[in-house]
């Protein structure tokens, strides 16, 4: 097998006495879609922040395309091809929707005009072109989610980290979101996606990884995961009981 795109080796992250990530390791192949699930506070966002460079791990190592990126700041990791969205949406509210995306596309195009051209294409890809000149602050929250995705895509990533991009969407909007992620997958970008709703993750991903109390407790296909007694106890049990 060829070298994995991303290799996360034995990551630990403590917040005071709390172990938010406890010996987490994960390989992601080129073009692979991995679903990351787990109960609230399991450490999923912490794990994302460590991969993206927003948080430093207490211990452990991250390799991207075989290169150690553990010491790089988020901007430099983005340059190498790691892009992300945030669990709590972050848009550049004083800028128009298209300008938000231009910020991303400028990473690969030094000339603002070509960057704008590319931003327009990405905008159409996420079906937001009708809102091109709207201030980002005026968007609805599902629109803001798509804008955030567009901005990340505009940096031409090889790996995309999606932190609950479907959260808070109505069923129709969620279907649109799923279709969008499928289209992204077709472009060959590898994705790690955190979602709470299993029905959303299952049809989209090649593999599911379950995090609980900072540890990976299971990893496998959707079918394997749903029957794993550990997972049922830690995660699915909650939703069945609820």
């Amino acid at each position: 097998m060829s070298e994995p795109l991303l290799q996360v080796r034995s990551i630990f992250r403590n917040f005071g006495a709390l172990r938010a990530n406890d010996d987490v390791s994960l390989d992601v192949q080129v073009g692979e879609i991995v679903g990351l699930i787990g109960p609230n506070g399991a450490g999923k966002s912490t794990f994302f922040n460590i991969i993206a460079g927003a948080l430093a791990p207490t211990r452990g190592q991250i390799l991207f395309e075989g290169r150690d990126v553990t010491a790089l700041v988020p901007a430099n990791r983005c340059r190498l091809g790691i892009a992300r969205t945030f669990q709590v949406v972050r848009s550049f509210d004083s800028m128009s929707v298209i300008d938000n995306i231009v910020v991303g596309s400028l990473l690969r195009n030094h000339d603002a005009r070509t960057a704008r051209h590319m931003a327009c294409e990405v905008l159409e890809f996420v079906e937001l072109e009708a809102r091109a000149d709207t201030p980002a602050g005026d968007l609805t929250s599902p629109e803001k989610r798509r804008l955030e995705l567009a901005r990340a895509l505009a940096t031409r990533p090889k790996l995309l980290l999606l932190d609950e991009v479907m959260a808070g969407l109505t069923p129709t909007e969620a279907l649109r979101g799923i279709a969008l992620v499928k289209r992204i997958r077709e472009t060959g970008v590898a994705i790690i996606m955190v979602e709470h709703v299993m029905e959303i993750v299952m049809p989209l991903v090649d593999r599911i990884v379950v995090l609980d109390l900072g540890k990976i407790i299971a990893s496998g296909s959707a079918a394997e995961i749903t029957t794993d007694p550990l997972v049922v106890a830690a995660y699915l049990g909650d939703s069945i009981r609820a």
Binding site: A52, A54, V73, P74, A75, N76, C78, R79, A83, R84, F86, R90, S91, F92, D93, S94, M95, D99, N100, V103, G104, L107, R151, A152, A154, T155
Partner: peptide, 16 residues
């Protein structure tokens, strides 16, 4: 302008 609106998000898009 991206740095002004949200520095962390700007950083995640490759902005120094």
């Amino acid at each position: 302008r991206a740095v002004k609106d949200d520095a962390e998000a700007a950083g995640s898009l490759g902005v120094n």
